[in-house]
Design a protein around this nucleic acid. Structure first.
Length: 609
DNA sequence: GAGATCTGTCATAAG
DNA sequence: AGCTTATGACAGATC
């Protein structure tokens, strides 16, 4: 009964649907829209498509995961960059790819081989050396994938076929691998690498770059195995060549001591080395330097690698030590020598050289202290020179050339004395000994007295410095000089007095020179101001003249216009009784003067208020 | 001899 | 705090 009810109700529903459809058919609706079976079929098809799409997306995700596993997130840029080869032991480096491969392909295809099965198969194929080299090959595979540009999509299956991606069935793997290796061996780039490695060349720049198509080709992962056919160099060449192939700078980054180990255990070091390989950009010199030391080290392959990651592959780059020819240091030293110019105590009016302490000590005696030292030497050539020589030899060897200057100075000074009527210029400007005033001889004697007094005092107290040194040395050098000699209180006081007096003397000369320059400048300004005043006065008189002329013209024009005005009777207005006034809007009015005068008087009356 | 000029020195303020 | 520089003032030498 229930079934009959259900069927009956179902028939009623169908009838109702038919009725509704008949109504909707006029609107263009088809019957399939209301057909349950049809809709169910469509639903199944759609669900099937969704499943397929989901499977496809899952596959893509797995592939992307496998790819990203080989990429390294750059913390600075946020980009995925090719992951450096693993520095840790091989297993840790291969594990990510292994996992992704096993997960993706064991799940997707039940007949696919696991990675370990592939390794086992390879071991069976090459029973002798592959036990050592297989990890290298696997690691090579692991490295080759990340070397692809991040933006590059997953390679098509045709390209990836021999690679770790979908491994072929066990019965076909060996022929495929052999074919892939043969293809690889036929690649000119690979042959080039092989030949270069055979020659143990150090040129890494000619190696295929990591991003080159050859490197990206996963077939390269089996390249080391192909070397097994060549029994002479298979083991030696494979790891190092692998490194050269995928990171040409790897071996260059390692110090000479570690190069052998690195080469022997290249696969295990790939992560570290390639990570440091990125530093190649920043440490090219180190790489070049160390590349020269790698010869003969690559044969050392039996060393343990356990301690390698803990060893620095390169020492921190010292920019100073690497600067060509230590130019930087020299430059810095020169800078230090030249910078203390301001401590010379020489006025800013002097030339730049004058302010240089090294030159001002004696070479610039011509500037401020010429009248003192030079004149004394001039007056007592023998004694002064000998005394100076003693002092120079005592303490101031660095300025031998200045010593020569001071010794040779008397010649000019003697000539100067022979021409006493030379025009004298400011001592601070001409150096004081190139030209002298007419009374230079007397003045010179004066300064000689002064300086000889200081010099005599210095001699009396056995001060082993020249006055020039005491005065012109920078404070640091002066202090250093003082510290080098044990001086008593009297000597120290005298040296300080000499230094103070000498500097003040130069300062007074500079001050007077500036004062004179200021006076000259003020006089010049005064003259120019006088000229400007005269010009302004002449302009003023001219303006007054023009103003008078314009007033006269305006007055005549006013009278002319006024004479043309007539009243209602045709009589002219009297200028004494009327006047023309212009309003602000430009209109002209004839205003009676009485009123105006009245207003004026009114204004006058109220103006005081 | 008086005045002008030059120069060195001191004292002091400022940097 | 010590040093250098700038500047006014003073003194001595010279013309």
């Amino acid at each position: 009964m229930l079934e009959m009810d259900v069927i009956h109700s179902g028939q009623q529903d169908m009838e109702l649907i038919d009725i509704l459809w008949n109504q909707d058919i006029d609107l263009g609706a088809r019957r399939e829209v209301f057909d349950y079976n049809h809709r169910q079929k469509e639903h199944e098809l759609r669900r099937q498509r969704e499943l397929e799409e989901e499977k496809r997306q899952h596959l893509v995700r797995e592939q992307q995961k496998a790819l990203l596993a080989q990429l390294q997130l750059d913390e600075e840029t946020g980009e995925y960059i090719p992951c450096p080869p693993p520095s840790a032991p091989l297993q840790s480096a291969v594990t990510p790819l292994e996992v992704t491969q096993n997960v993706s392909y064991t799940e997707e295809s039940g007949d696919a081989m696991s990675f370990d099965e592939c390794l086992q198969l390879l071991a069976e194929t090459f029973p002798v050396e592959e036990t050592e080299n297989t990890p290298v090959c696997l690691d090579t595979t692991a490295v080759s994938a990340p070397m692809m540009p991040p933006e590059q999509p997953v390679l098509p299956p045709a390209t990836l076929s021999p690679a770790p991606l979908p491994p072929p069935p066990p019965q076909r793997i060996t022929p495929d691998l052999e074919q892939a290796w043969m293809e690889l061996l036929s690649l000119p780039e690979l042959q080039q690498c092989l030949s270069m490695q055979m020659e143990d060349t150090l040129e890494t720049t000619t190696y295929p770059l990591p991003n080159s198509p050859e490197v990206q080709n996963p077939n390269y992962s089996f390249y080391p195995m192909t070397n097994l056919t060549d029994k002479t160099n298979s083991l030696n060449v494979c790891p190092a060549e692998f490194m050269n192939t995928f990171d040409g700078s790897v071996h260059n980054l390692a110090p000479a001591d570690n190069l052998g180990q690195i080469r022997a255990n290249a696969p295990q070091l790939n992560a570290n080395l390639t990570a440091e390989g990125f530093c190649e950009i920043y440490y090219p010199d180190v790489i070049l330097e160390e590349s020269s030391g790698q010869h003969g080290l690559k044969e050392n392959e039996s060393n343990a690698m356990s301690d390698i990651p803990n060893k620095p592959f390169f020492t921190p780059l010292d920019p100073y030590s690497l600067s060509p020819g230590d130019a930087f240091d020299r430059g810095k030293h020169n800078l230090m020598v030249e910078l203390p110019d301001s401590d010379s105590g020489i006025s800013s009016n002097t030339s730049p050289n004058a302010s240089s302490p090294g030159k001002s000590v004696y070479g610039n005696d011509s500037y401020g202290y010429s009248d003192s030292d030079m004149d004394e030497i001039d007056d007592n050539p023998g004694s002064a020179e000998s005394d100076y020589s003693e002092m120079f030899s005592l303490n101031f060897q660095p300025d031998d050339h200045q010593m020569a200057i001071s010794v040779s100075a008397p010649l000019g000074q003697t000539q100067q004395e022979k021409n006493p009527k030379q025009h004298r210029t400011d001592p601070a400007e001409d150096g004081g000994h190139n030209s002298t005033p007419f009374a230079k001889d007397k003045q010179k004697k004066r300064s000689e007295v002064r300086l000889s007094r200081d010099e005599q005092r210095a001699k009396a107290l056995k001060i082993p410095f020249t006055v020039s040194m005491i005065i012109n040395l920078p404070v640091d050098d002066f202090n250093e000089l003082m510290s080098k000699h044990e001086l008593n209180e009297a000597q120290l006081a005298l040296v300080r007095d000499i230094r103070r007096r000498g500097k003040n003397k130069v300062a007074a000369q500079n001050c007077r020179k500036r004062k004179m320059e200021n006076i000259v400048g003020l006089e010049s300004n005064l003259d120019s101001l006088k000229d400007e005043k005269e010009l302004l006065l002449s302009e003023k008189s001219e303006n007054i003249t023009n103003m008078k002329e314009m007033k006269q013209q305006l007055n005549s024009l006013y009278l002319e216009v006024f004479s043309m005005l007539r009243d209602e009777k045709g009589n002219s207005y009297s200028p004494s009784e009327y006047s023309l006034q212009q309003s602000t809007d430009g209109s002209v009015f004839l205003v009676p003067r009485i009123k105006k005068t009245f207003i004026k008087t009114e204004d006058n009356l109220f103006s005081p208020l």
